[in-house]
């Protein structure tokens, strides 16, 4: 699994490539933690190449929701395939974090 981060004009984009499980979720944790430390307020997560996510990955996103709220950080996930999205749906997490089809929609959410 590879995670990269790129500062764009208005947003900070984290791109995930591969599978997030109990072994690799620490890398996602590090990427989000670094974004917060850098003071990023508009975070997008490109999930186009995210093929799999287990509860360990979901848990990373969930564990930062309070920080996002407290620090006024907006985050949106985009380009997620239906199978991966179904994992968020099973636990009702789609009500807690924005998951949208396109990058343009994600940008509007964090504006």
């Amino acid at each position: 699994m590879n995670i990269s981060a790129n500062k764009e004009e208005k947003t900070y984009v984290i791109t995930i490539d591969g599978e997030i499980d109990a072994s690799s979720s620490i890398e996602l944790d590090t990427a989000i933690s670094e974004a917060i430390k850098k003071g990023e307020r508009k975070i997008l997560v490109d999930c186009a190449k995210l093929n799999y996510i287990s509860s360990a990955g979901l848990g990373v996103f969930m564990s930062y929701l309070e920080d996002f709220e407290e620090q006024g950080i907006k985050i949106a996930l985009f380009h997620m395939n239906d199978k991966v999205k179904s994992v968020f749906e099973i636990l009702g997490l789609v009500d807690l974090i924005d998951i949208v089809p396109t990058k343009e929609e994600a940008e509007k959410i964090v504006e």
């Binding site: 509860s55 979901l58 848990g59 969930m62 930062y64 309070e66 099973i90 636990l91 807690l96």
Partner: peptide
């Protein structure tokens, strides 16, 4: 409950829920 996990900033606790739902 997921809301409790979020409040407590916990990373774990979702796996058993997933297993039970599937």
């Amino acid at each position: 409950p997921v809301e409790r996990l979020v409040k407590d900033r916990r990373k774990g606790g979702l796996g058993v829920s997933l297993i039970k739902k599937i």
